[in-house]
């Protein structure tokens, strides 16, 4: 098995899985029926993408492992999603800020990945671009509404942006698998997306009458398997059935 490719795919897919899981927790608890529908829809897209990636990874592994083994039966430190996506649904401002800060990266990333020499990854990316363009439009519109809405909403979304900002820089860290895959023309050199990302985000924040945080202190670790305290709880929900009833079909 091509270990680097396998790990590379898991790194991409874990972001979708964990963010999809977080959004799924909100179903039925949103501020309006329309936002509930949209949130569920985004979660569904992300879980769909996760499945495509994991099915491909399982095939590469060449043994009897399945997409579900990969999704549900790893140890916490074996998940390599960025810290940003595992942050909790503190309030709707946090949900939208987390979403937007990830969506901008996600779209830039997929646009590059569609040029991958690996045809399967390129195809998954191509399909994902349509979905993620919508996600970004949705979350970006909400940042604007909340930023330029009422005094209260402005304060709340600014607070969320400020709190989550610390997790943005990790998006551009390159893992060992990233480096190998990029050299082979399969992976994306994420460090090159950084300037475009921060420019786009700060432009939108400005339009939303929000301040772009100036802090230069960033928190990282997820990509190396060192997660925040929230992750264990997220995984106990995610893995509950597979851990309690091992080796069964559902």
């Amino acid at each position: 098995m091509n270990e680097d490719l396998y790990n590379y795919i898991l790194g991409i897919a874990d972001n979708s899985l964990i963010l999809g899981q977080r959004l799924g927790e909100l179903c039925g608890h949103g501020p309006s029926l329309e936002t509930d529908i949209a949130g569920t829809n985004i979660s569904l897209d992300l879980i769909g993408q996760t499945r495509s990636y994991f099915q491909y990874a399982a095939k590469l592994a060449g043994d009897d492992r399945t997409e579900d083994d990969i999704a549900f039966l790893r140890l916490e430190k074996q998940y390599t999603n960025v810290l940003l996506v595992e942050q909790p649904n503190t309030h709707f401002g946090y949900v939208m800020a987390r979403q937007y800060l990830f969506d901008v990266f996600h779209l830039l990333f997929l646009k590059e990945l569609q040029g991958s020499k690996d045809e399967t990854l390129a195809a998954i990316a191509k399909k994902g671009i349509k979905e993620v363009s919508y996600h970004k439009r949705f979350s970006g519109d909400w940042i604007k509404r909340l930023g330029d809405g009422t005094e209260e909403s402005h304060a709340k979304i600014q607070e969320a942006i400020d709190d989550l900002w610390t997790y943005t820089d990790e998006l551009f860290d390159s893992t060992a698998a990233d480096a190998v895959m990029t050299a082979q023309g399969i992976g994306v050199d994420v460090s090159k997306l950084k300037d475009t990302y921060y420019k786009e985000v700060s432009d939108l924040l400005e339009e939303a009458t929000l301040a772009t945080p100036e802090s230069k202190y960033f928190t990282r670790g997820g990509k190396k398997g060192t997660h925040s305290e929230h992750m264990g709880y997220l995984l106990s929900d995610l893995q509950y059935m597979q851990r309690t009833y091992p080796n069964m079909n559902w």
Partner: peptide, 18 residues
């Protein structure tokens, strides 16, 4: 939704609730 036993079931349940 957060505890569905497989990815396929999770996606189907999300779609249903949607």
């Amino acid at each position: 939704i957060s505890r569905a036993p497989s990815l396929r079931r999770k996606a189907a349940l999300l779609a249903k609730v949607q």
